[in-house]
Design a protein around this nucleic acid. Sequence first.
DNA 1: CACATTTGCCTAAAGGCCTTAGGTAGTGCA
DNA 2: TGCACTACCTAAGGCCTTTAGGCAAATGTG
Lengths: 189, 189
Amino acid sequence: MVRAGLTPERLTQAGAELADEVGFEQVTVSALARRFDVKAASLYSHVRSSHDLKTRIALLALEEMADRSAEALAGRAGKGALTALADVYRDYAREHPGRYTAARFPLDPETAAASAGPRHARMTRAVLRGYDLQEPESTHAVRLLGSVFHGYVSLEAAGGFSHSAPDSQESWERTLDALDALLRNWPTA
Amino acid sequence: MVRAGLTPERLTQAGAELADEVGFEQVTVSALARRFDVKAASLYSHVRSSHDLKTRIALLALEEMADRSAEALAGRAGKGALTALADVYRDYAREHPGRYTAARFPLDPETAAASAGPRHARMTRAVLRGYDLQEPESTHAVRLLGSVFHGYVSLEAAGGFSHSAPDSQESWERTLDALDALLRNWPTA
DNA sequence: CACATTTGCCTAAAGGCCTTAGGTAGTGCA
DNA sequence: TGCACTACCTAAGGCCTTTAGGCAAATGTG
């Protein structure tokens, strides 16, 4: 009996790959076990449950995106920073659709607080340093940016912008132009 | 043996209610059968599969939102129309979280084309009639609006904006102010 | 009204996923 | 070398999906 060498980390990693290949919804303890040529029950020594597995994949995705964001934002400000951050999300979602979906997996409050989620919020806020917004307007702007990034990326992933002109890349660029203009000219209340 | 009086319509309607109560993911042929005090197998005379059931719920939700949108847009233009349409989505998602999620259920191309989806696109475009945008910019703007609406509503539903000041309602209003200002001052390429 | 047909829900059963309990065989250290 | 520990296994129960075939209620026909 040759051992497969399972660990929570390897399972999470393989689960993330599986998600990208077949979709996050199809990530299942059984499917993952098959991939390691092992019985499903064997995974339960490394992972508490199917829910736990999904949570770990979500945390991995959040972490990876946050790492990419930090790197992308280094040395950039203003529109350069805005574009860099936005592209991180969009590119990540295109390269890793399953992981991107995983990142929206609902986490319980403590887990969410300990995740890379707060880093994401801080980085979006960092982009706003290049613009002239004071509280509470900057919070509204953070929420708007988050909405656009997530909304655009998820509609695009759902195929919403394919099969129709102009192509999505162009809309994405114009969307970022528009957001930049909006942040430079934020309307007063 | 008293008959339950199942029909595809009643199943779809009850499925939508179930979705709102326990979440769209938990809508299952078995759970729906339980609700009608009937065996799961009995539903298969009225609905082709679990996937078919979910598709029907998705179509119902799209239709309901489109109907509300049409009513909300009647007699409105400019920012009034923008706000009215945006509020339809947000309110619908808050009243019917399960249905709102259902509306994002991936439809195959033919089904999507026959759904209320295209009506939604036309209504968003109608809002832009109150602003001065020419193609292809209006298409970019349609996509941006769709992204913000969906992004904001889904982040809000995920609890992203709760437990932190300022409250979500305020951000929503300022977001719509910002979008209005942006559409009135759309940056040239 | 009696009878035939259709229709609506049922039981049975197979297959898949999740999860727990308890067993067995590699692995590493005394 | 032998023992303890760990890693994976088998068995089994529970829930979900889906198909096949059966019986009874509803509907229509002479």
